[in-house]
């Protein structure tokens, strides 16, 4: 990041913000996360309930998505979460597939494939899980070697002092056109996603595998049982989705074109006074 600068016109200067490997791994990751999310929801739809512990206490799920007959006799989508019952007709539990209303947990537009098909959802999910893991390992390895990790992601000494102001700026949508380097909130968020969320997603996924469980039974103890691991997998996914939503909002709010250009071509425009020396 912020490697070379060339002569810009007026106040604008072009800098090389992202290396090719960071850009490629970013977009491979986008593909993986979207497909893993949507095929994962397809898999979830095969048994739309979450439990705590080793086995499934079918009468007491933490979360379940189903349908029931409403007061007027018409079917409605019902989501039960931690004992609370919410009507979710149209989205969760009862939604439309090719124009026809059908009982299904997550709606057709959120699943791969759109129709109910566990086997196909699984082959998508398990293929892109491998791509996600290989891409993540290559990214981490390259980031350590190229010092992308230590230079751009690890918080810089003295930067911690700016955390209060940076959080306040984010909450009030006050952004300063930067130098192309990450602020403390970005660094901590990306580190959390790279070092906590992504590994947790993979490990809880593996804790659902009967083969891996025989080889590495302590994973079961770490997560407190297979059904707990499945629930944590779902929660981690939800946090991933929350991250992506905030991430995309920030990309748009801080200059969609400039940000997208820097993540595709590598080039980023900074104001003249911000050209790194």
């Amino acid at each position: 990041m912020a490697a070379s600068s060339s002569a810009g016109t007026g106040e604008r200067h072009w800098i090389r913000r992202f290396s090719a490997s960071v850009r490629v791994s970013h977009w491979v990751n986008v593909l993986c996360v979207v497909i893993l999310l949507m095929s994962g929801l397809q898999i979830f739809n095969a048994h739309p309930a979450l439990y705590w512990g080793e086995d499934s206490d079918f009468d007491r799920p933490l979360l379940s998505i189903s349908w029931a007959s409403g007061a007027d006799g018409r079917p409605m989508g019902v989501t039960n979460i931690l004992g609370r019952r919410i009507e979710t007709t149209g989205v969760l539990g009862w939604s439309r597939l090719d124009g026809r209303p059908v009982p299904r947990a997550f709606p057709a537009w959120l699943t791969i494939p759109s129709w109910q098909d566990l086997a196909t959802g699984r082959i998508w999910h398990l293929f892109f899980a491998w791509v996600f893991v290989v891409n993540g390992v290559l990214f981490l390895g390259h980031s350590l070697v190229s010092r992308h990790f230590s230079r751009d992601l690890l918080p810089v000494r003295g930067e911690w002092r700016t955390i209060g102001r940076t959080v306040r700026d984010h909450l009030t949508f006050t952004f300063h056109r930067g130098t192309g380097t990450y602020n403390i909130v970005q660094r901590l968020t990306y580190l959390l996603v790279i070092l906590a969320l992504a590994p947790l997603a993979v490990l809880t996924g593996l804790t659902m595998s009967p083969g891996v469980m025989a080889a590495v039974p302590w994973l079961l103890d770490v997560f407190g049982g297979r059904q707990t691991a499945r629930t944590v997998h779902f929660v981690v996914t939800s946090l991933f989705v929350a991250f992506v939503v905030v991430h995309v909002v920030m990309v748009v709010a801080t200059g969609l074109v400039n940000n997208m250009r820097s993540m595709t071509t590598g080039w980023y425009v900074v104001a003249g006074r911000n050209v790194p020396q």
């Binding site: 196909t120 082959i123 998508w124 398990l126 293929f127 899980a129 491998w130 595998s209 009967p210 083969g211 891996v212 469980m213 025989a214 080889a215 039974p217 079961l220």
Partner: peptide
């Protein structure tokens, strides 16, 4: 394309078989 995606099954099987001690018991 299904065959292509399904190729991951072979990778999973080989990796699990390589890492799994053959006699490793399920809990």
């Amino acid at each position: 394309f299904r065959e292509f995606l399904g190729g991951a099954e072979g990778v999973t099987r080989r990796v699990q078989r390589a890492l799994l001690w053959r006699g490793a018991l399920a809990r």
